[in-house]
Design a protein around this nucleic acid. Structure first.
Length: 869
RNA sequence: GCGGGCGUGGUGGAAUGGUAGACACAAGGGACUUAAAAUCCCUCGGCGAUAGCUGUGCGGGUUCGAGUCCCGCCGCCCGCACCA
């Protein structure tokens, strides 16, 4: 028996079947135990899982199985983020329906996930492309429409010319579409929006309460929301025949620098610019030029500051009799603030660049600390740091903050055009969330456009608005719009011929509430609020950092919107958030420069030197850098092959060991083999101990020192592993399990007495329970060998005996002048005076002191002794 | 440019201000074997024969004591980026 190797290929499917048959991981909503909701970001059904999924779901499963063992009612569901463009591309390439392709992929991936042995309640599985799911999304869209959380407006949008659809700001990365990578163009389109900006302040403020989120993610969201406090300020215009506008409104965060103002800047898209350009061909050409360059971020960055003098002038608001020129400038954005600024070149680099180019005045008004007001001047670098206001009449001598307050009061009390000249205002960078996508494979937006009644919601009794099946992807663009009949309907209000909305929703809408749907996946309503409120927020959410802004911010907004529409009773969907690192692998390159897959090469090691050659041709292969696994670099490892070769437990164990979970992990063949060896070691240990116990049935002399040491090691491990799993430090939990295994194996090999064997028997029992969340199949097999009734998956987590964590002796390091010179083993908790007399009596101490008295003796109880000679 | 993070053996990484390098991988040596695989044992930051000295990117500081805290550099990574 003990000679047999553990065979995961036999054992893993066996236990998966047992779990299935016993419905081990089904979760009841009415279970009275404490609820615990653990969720990993659901996958896009691309057809195959990758190692990133394995890592993500291995972590989630550890958390789920641990809390199950701790007696919680654990919800651990899985679903599919099933709408999206790849299905349409596949439809074009393979002449299949996007749904056919998607559901086939779901089947394939589900099989793969099941082979991992995850403790998932598959009865709650959802696919966002199913009408059973998206009908509720349509209901909520209409609820949100009623509540004024949805608008339709014409807006300049990011247009992806490859995917032929609109992208949200968040989906544009470095000026390129997040999926297609194509440079994004600006277009003017009528779009549906969720009014996420109404929640900007709340979304920002509530970040402080998300204490179980990574600081990095919170920071990224804070920056994205981009709150800035400033002043809206009216500049009175000097009369001109070019326009009848009487004032220009600007937004500034630096009103304290108003005495240094030297021009007004307008966005090329400012209404006044547009008006002036109508009669001014040169200005029109300038604006057109700005638009040409205005699309990609890269060009923006390098673009020179350019301005166009409109000839208009405004009155300087605080310097009597002085006027300022009005420029149109290429760097001013229309959709931030008011689309107009006042330029203070001395204290803003962009303004300075423009001022130098057009010879405008540069007056410093903030004096750096220690600078001499008589000689301080600005060269080609604006001064943006703290200082004291000068050259500024009634603001002189104030700090920047005080000056801001003073000038806000000053302008608040004055009137221009019958309004206060200045008004304190808060601005956010966060824009409304444009959800319209000109695609077929998405959730239809349930409205009808009627010439008479305008935009009419589809009556709720007519939901869901279902996607038509008979679609063709022969033409580029929106197949829904191209469908011959689908969009032609009668107006639900007046009955006249009308047109269905053919935009579908951004797939980020689908993933903004799936976590709520899991709590009642078959309900007739989007949620059953009492049930959702019991489960939510998700106790532990785990996923990739790439969703730090998009998905997590949208979900936070959507949860608030669901609260306002009565579907849930809370604001924040995710109490604990964890972002795991990527899975990386070495890259391999042939002499031809082509990337080569790891399976096609063999590594030769000679000492520490490694070289690679092609298996078939023997051609030399260059070992390249370690990179994120990607198809393009061919440095991917297929989870199916790993499971087939080593088993799921080995893959899971390796994904959890060594690297801290938030950091990248490097997949190596040697590492996997190490994990696999450990699996065999555990199997052997358990079998050996069982055999020993059978031969030596008599038990327990509890004062046996060796047996006690084993028990202590076991309980230390239980305590440590529990803490590490709760803190998501899986690599440290793994290390502690190794440590315990080493202790137990050593005891097995050391001619164990009856008492030791009894302790060992208990020890391996606990060890298997500690291993269970990580290698559940192995654990079940060992559990069986140990002669337990039932499944280890159903067993409660071992209890820590606090008495076993206490040592009555402790070994203190002895430092002399901060350097370690020796150690002493004393009774734990010994009084400082007693410790001192014991330590001072030591030869090594007396030798070091050379007969002198120590200057000082520091004793930290049970930790350290430091003697200052 | 702004914001955040990180820098520890050959490698991945441990270390509530208290014995730096737990645990693992790689490497080297040995045992068992006809041989191999598997397994087990030993060594493994550097210098040194030992005692010892030295060592956590670099330079300072606080402290009885610093990988950890503070200041200043250097390097790498990530995010945002004409947001007034």
């Amino acid at each position: 028996m003990s000679g047999e190797r553990y065979n995961p290929r036999e054992s893993e499917p066996k236990w998966q079947k047992v779990w299935d048959e016993k419905q081990s991981f089904l979760t009841a909503n009415d279970d009275p135990r404490d609820p615990y909701y653990v969720l990993e970001m659901f996958p896009y059904p691309s057809g195959r899982i990758h190692m990133g999924h394995v890592r993500n779901y291995a972590m989630g499963d550890v958390v789920a199985r641990y809390h199950r063992a701790k007696g919680k009612n654990v919800l651990h569901p899985m679903g599919w983020d099933a709408f999206g463009l790849p299905a349409e591309n596949a439809a074009i390439e393979r002449k299949t329906h996007p749904g056919t392709w998607t559901y086939a992929n779901i089947e394939a991936m589900k099989k793969q996930l099941k082979s991992m042995g995850l403790s998932i309640d598959w009865s709650r599985e959802i696919a966002t492309c199913s009408p059973d799911y998206y009908r509720h999304q349509q209901t909520m869209f209409l609820n949100m429409l009623e509540k004024g959380l949805v608008t339709r407006k014409s807006s300049k949008v990011n247009w992806d010319p490859v995917d032929m659809t609109v992208l949200a700001n968040e989906q544009v990365i470095d000026g390129k579409g997040w999926r297609s990578g194509a440079p994004v163009e600006q277009r003017e389109l009528v779009q549906w929006f969720f009014k996420i900006s109404d929640f900007a302040e709340d979304l920002l403020a509530a970040l402080d309460g998300l204490t179980e989120w990574p600081e990095k993610v919170r920071t990224m969201q804070r920056n994205w929301i981009g709150k800035s406090e400033g002043l809206r300020l009216l500049f009175e215009m000097v009369r001109s025949d070019k326009t009848n506008a009487t004032s220009i409104e600007v937004f500034t965060t630096r009103p304290d620098t108003i005495f240094g103002a030297s021009f007004i800047g307008l966005s090329p898209d400012h209404p006044l610019t547009t008006q002036l350009a109508a009669d001014n061909a040169d200005l029109a050409a300038f604006v057109a030029e700005c638009h040409r360059h205005g699309t990609s971020t890269e060009t923006l960055e390098k673009a020179e500051k350019q301005g166009f003098d409109t000839g208009l002038r405004v009155k300087h608001p605080v310097i009597e009799g002085e006027t300022l020129p009005v420029y149109v400038a290429n760097f001013i954005l229309m959709d931030y603030g008011t689309g107009a600024i006042f330029g203070c070149p001395a204290h803003d680099q962009r303004d300075l660049d423009l001022a130098r180019k057009y010879g405008l005045s540069v007056t410093p008004v903030v004096l750096p600390p220690d600078a001499d007001p008589a000689t301080f001047s600005i060269d080609n670098e604006a001064y943006t740091d703290a200082g004291t206001i000068f050259n500024s009449d009634f603001l002189n001598g104030l700090s920047i903050d005080d000056a801001k307050k003073a000038i806000a009061e000053h302008f608040g009390a004055r009137q221009v055009d019958g309004k206060p000249q200045g008004k304190v205002e808060v601005n956010y960078r966060l824009r409304d969330w444009g959800i319209s996508r000109q695609r077929y494979w998405g959730c239809p937006i349930p409205v009808v456009h009627c010439e008479v009644c305008g935009t009419v919601p589809v009556p709720k009794k007519d939901l869901p608005v279902v996607l038509p099946d008979d679609v063709s992807f022969d033409k580029p663009g929106n197949a829904l719009d191209h469908h011959p009949t689908w969009k032609h309907v009668n107006c639900p209000q007046c009955g006249a011929a009308a047109r269905r909305e053919t935009d579908t929703m951004d797939t980020f809408v689908d993933s903004s509430w799936y976590f709520a749907r899991f709590t009642a996946p078959n309900a007739d309503t989007p949620t059953i609020p009492e049930i959702a409120n019991r489960w939510l927020p998700v106790d532990q959410y785990i996923g990739g950092i790439e969703h730090a802004i998009l998905h997590l911010l949208y979900s936070r907004f959507f949860t608030r919107a669901m609260k306002e529409t009565g579907h849930v009773g809370l604001d924040e969907p995710f109490k604990g958030m964890f972002t795991q690192g990527m899975v990386t692998h070495e890259t391999y390159k042939a002499e031809t420069g082509e990337w080569v897959n790891p399976t096609e090469i063999v590594i030769d090691s000679e000492g520490e030197k490694r070289s690679a050659r092609h298996i078939q041709t023997g051609a030399p292969i260059t070992i390249g850098s370690v990179e994120k696994m990607s198809k393009s670099k061919k440095n991917v490892v297929d989870p199916d092959e790993i499971v087939a070769t080593y088993g799921a437990d080995t893959a899971r164990w390796f994904m959890l060991s060594d690297s801290p979970p938030e950091r990248d992990v490097q997949w190596t063949e040697a590492g996997v083999e190490g994990a696999s060896r450990f699996q065999q070691r555990v199997w052997r240990l358990v079998n050996d101990v069982v055999a020993l116990a059978e031969q030596s049935p008599d038990t327990v002399a509890s004062d046996d020192k060796n047996a006690l040491d084993i028990r202590k090691a076991v309980h230390r491990a239980i305590a440590g592993v529990s803490q590490d799993i709760e803190g998501l430090r899986f690599n440290r939990a793994v290390a502690q399990i190794y440590e315990l295994t080493n202790v137990l194996a050593k005891a097995r090999d050391g001619k164990p007495t009856g008492a030791v064997i009894a302790a060992l028997r208990e020890g391996v029992q606990s060890l298997i329970q500690l291993i269970n969340p990580m290698m559940p199949h192995l654990a079940e097999s060992c559990w069986e060998v140990l002669g337990n009734e039932g499944l280890v998956s159903d067993a409660l987590w071992p209890e820590v005996d606090p008495a076993m964590l206490v040592d009555d002796e402790v070994t203190l390091p002895i430092q002399i002048n901060g350097r370690r010179r020796g150690e002493i083993t004393l009774a734990k908790g010994m009084a400082a005076a007693d410790v001192e007399s014991q330590v001072m009596a030591l030869d090594l101490v007396q030798k070091a002191l050379e007969g002198k008295e120590p200057k000082k003796v520091v004793i930290v109880q049970d930790r350290i002794v430091n003697i200052v000679a």
